[in-house]
Design a protein around this nucleic acid. Structure first.
Length: 516
RNA sequence: GGGCUUGUAGCUCAGCUAGGCAGAGCAAUCGGCUCUUAACCGAUUGGCCAGGGGUUCGAAUCCCCUCAAGCCCGCCA
């Protein structure tokens, strides 16, 4: 059984409306590791609905969290904002409503692109609307109990006078600097490090925030959360999950949600991704270089507890191939190889929305990578594909869009991540090369045969061999010569296919020019 | 110190959430066609399933112990 089905079954033991929650703090670029949380939950959600359950997928952006420090990717001037809620800090690029939105908006766009549609909550609005007021009041009434729970389970000593609420100083706007002096419902008197002394009324929204270890359980109760996964960093004994479980049950009188712990995603060669350390690829970038169904496939095909290595180099091509193979097997075009697990479910969960009824038109991705380096626009690529009969004339609109979309991803990958070995450029003019006599002889033989041949990959391929044999030139030199005069480099894509995708007259003229 | 995950062919891994013949891909070797850019096709080789114990008619699979590796926690979230 697919892991998502196992989790969904677990939830279905209780017949009620399930709230499947995810939450991420948009304090930096949101990366694919964070995306795993959402896609994992989305998978369970889909399985739940498939099985006839009732559920909702939610995403809480904790944008009321204070900025912890000036991250490496921030200007030094942000020093003055440290401690303020990230929804109250100006946007680094100036185009968004706030610092939080700067990262959140692009992540929400990525979610849309990858086919996830959660109900989005913003913590700053929930606090300011007063949604948290009751939870805050209950927390403050139970200060001693909460303190005891946290101290006992996390083995952490909390300071004297600690209360489960961080007041936001009215003067310096920081959540991290004010110390409560006295609590007398509904007023908290406080003294801030900035020198200000004041009081806030907790029945008014947005005057402060519950600390994380209390905020989380409060939110479970408030939203009726029944399932929420979390990363392995939070899964540790004595961590927020442990204290949260106790707090939600004993203070808020609500059962702790079910969960799964998910592993991190490593970037090949760079270790785990951390938004704060800058070793992260943003979800946006990852999606720009990877077709969305393929990215989903990567996560759906692996249990959440398995750590993944994302290879933004050549490994990406293999991943796409693997997906395409899965697709062929799903539609019965190919035998399953042993080891393909939960093939049907995995494929279906990889789809953005509706499952296709017939197999989408497939073009080998590696070949597409070559083609888009020959044709500058999709129209040109399409022309080549039609001319060489690599796609049928009556290709459906959906299939064309699918290919076009893949071409865009491949293009982004080539421009930003692909290793040089797969890159080339068809030079508009003959590159400067000193050809040896034997190379010219080979070209002469080649051009004579090429001019009279059908412009087919196999035939061209054969002619290259014939010519090299006839002129007694090593085949390696023959290929090298072709690449030199067309690409200005010594290696290139498989010659037969490559040339057949170029215009015949162009190739003949180029050879002629080179021989002179 | 604690937690999680992993350990299966030379490499990367599936099989573990139904206990029932040990599996794939790549590499290697041989052949086809002098074969380019992780692209061809066919065949062959390759394993004490980390080690030990237990449960069972039967264990890679379930339980316990040991060893090794990776990551996380022991600031904040």
């Amino acid at each position: 059984m697919h892991w998502a089905d196992v989790l969904a079954d677990e939830l279905l033991k209780e017949e009620k409306k399930h709230v499947l929650a995810t939450g991420i703090t948009p304090s930096g670029p949101i990366h694919i590791g964070n995306m795993r949380e959402i896609l994992t939950t989305d998978a369970v959600y889909r399985c739940l609905i498939d099985k006839g359950g009732d559920g909702e997928l939610t995403y809480v952006a904790d944008d009321y969290d204070p900025l912890r420090k000036v991250y490496p990717y921030l200007p030094k001037s942000y020093e003055k904002y440290v401690g303020m809620p990230i929804s109250d800090i100006p946007c680094p690029c100036g185009k968004h409503k706030s610092y939080a939105d700067h990262y959140l908006v692009s992540f929400l766009n990525s979610l849309k692109e990858i086919g996830v549609k959660p109900h989005v909550y913003r913590a700053n609005e929930m606090y300011k609307n007063g949604d948290y007021n009751q939870a805050i009041q209950i927390a403050l009434e139970n200060t001693d109990k909460i303190k005891e729970i946290i101290q006992k389970i996390s083995k952490r000593q909390l300071p004297k006078g600690w209360i489960p609420f961080n007041v936001r100083c009215e003067k310096c706007k920081k959540l991290t600097a004010a110390k409560a002096v006295l609590y007398d419902y509904p007023i908290i008197e406080y003294k801030c490090d900035c020198g200000y002394e004041g009081e806030v009324d907790i029945t008014k929204g947005g005057v402060g925030k519950l600390p994380w270890r209390v905020d989380w359980p409060a939110r479970w109760k408030m939203l009726g959360v029944t399932f929420e996964p979390f990363g392995k960093d939070l899964g540790t004994v004595g961590g927020a999950r442990d204290t949260g479980e106790k707090i939600v049950e004993e203070i808020y009188g609500y059962p702790a949600p079910k969960y799964t712990v998910y592993e991190f995603i490593m970037l090949k060669g760079e270790g785990a991704m951390h938004s704060s350390k800058g070793t992260a690829l943003s979800a946006g970038e990852m999606l720009a270089m990877t077709p969305p169904e393929v990215l989903r496939f990567l996560l759906m095909n692996n249990q959440p507890g398995k750590h993944l290595v994302f290879d933004s180099g050549l490994g990406l091509l293999n991943l796409v191939d693997e997906y395409d193979k899965e697709e062929r097997v799903y539609f019965g075009k190919e035998e399953a190889t042993k080891g393909m697990k939960d093939l049907k479910k995995t494929y279906e969960l990889s789809q953005l929305r509706n499952y296709p009824k017939t197999i989408p038109y497939q073009l080998p991705y590696r070949h597409l990578v070559t083609l888009i380096q020959i044709g500058e626009s999709w129209d040109e690529v399409k022309k080549i594909l039609l001319r060489t009969k690599q796609i049928p004339k009556d290709l459906s609109k959906d299939d064309e869009n699918h290919l076009k979309q893949r071409a865009e991803h491949a293009r982004y990958w080539l421009d930003n991540f692909a290793p040089d070995i797969v890159k080339f450029e068809v030079k508009k003019k003959l590159p400067k090369v000193d050809l040896a006599k034997e190379q010219k002889k080979f070209l002469l033989a080649l051009t004579g045969k090429l001019s009279s041949v059908d412009w087919e990959a196999e035939d061209i391929h054969k002619i290259i061999y014939d010519s090299s044999e006839k002129e007694k030139i090593p085949i390696k030199t023959a290929f090298k010569t072709i690449y030199q005069i067309i690409l200005g480099q010594e290696k290139g894509p498989r010659a037969g296919y490559f040339l057949s995708n170029l215009n015949k007259d162009f190739v003949l003229e180029r050879i002629e020019e080179a021989v002179i």
